[in-house]
Design a protein around this nucleic acid. Structure first.
Lengths: 110, 110
DNA sequence: TTATTATAACGCAATATTACGATTAAAACT
DNA sequence: AGTTTTAATCGTAATATTGCGTTATAATAA
């Protein structure tokens, strides 16, 4: 079907899945890494940084905006992209939380 | 097209995307959380824990196995599922690494 | 005003993902 | 041998995602 049965899982599980999905494409990872590296807003040619057409980049930006990880404020002709610090830390904490569990299996089969 | 142009991105970017994709579905998150909570192998009814049909659960397990996050060893009639400690820590480190970057934007637009 | 530039939105084609019924396979009983 | 249990695989349908050409849109420049 291609449709996820979100209603049968907890809010937390759906949230982790949604955040993970935002990172589940190399182009979106590249966008975030670029914004992190620059430590500033990118007002302008983010398209030139990626091996994809403008329309495709715009779509990935839209998805990152949809989960709230980045913001895009209009600055004259161009748009200023920024990582949303608050959301970034929220997503970080969600991942830190699940990965803080230690894997300690006592069984012989592992 | 639905096909990701992985060859145009770095290995690191593709790796993060692949790991994120493994977590990008609430059922797979639920499976991992359950295995983490139990702190042991689950030999048996993992299907009963999820609101999905057996075939669907099996498919999600297959994806988690494909990225190496879990292992499944046959134990008689049933299969013993376990989180792969080594891989788990590797994935954790990959996420910790990207999220360790601080967001420090000096621009006025943010 | 008109051209230019930058980016978003629309629409299409191709591929991927999700879900599940049905089937198959393998081990453990009886 | 036949039955039961458990889980993988197959086949199919529906929806989602990816990518891009094209078309708006909006601000600046000439």
């Amino acid at each position: 079907m291609g449709v996820t049965k979100t209603q049968n899982f907890t809010e937390g599980q759906n949230q982790i899945a949604a955040y993970a999905k935002a990172l589940a494409h190399p182009a979106r990872v590249a966008i975030l890494q670029y914004l992190l590296k620059k430590q500033t807003c990118i007002c302008g040619d983010l398209v030139g940084e990626l091996p994809l057409a403008q329309a495709t980049v715009s779509q990935h930006l839209k998805e990152l905006k949809a989960v709230g990880l980045i913001t895009g404020t209009v600055e004259g002709t161009s748009v200023c992209y920024c990582i949303d610090k608050h959301k970034w830390e929220e997503v970080r904490d969600v991942f830190f939380n699940i990965f803080s569990s230690n894997v300690e299996c006592q069984d012989s089969c592992c």
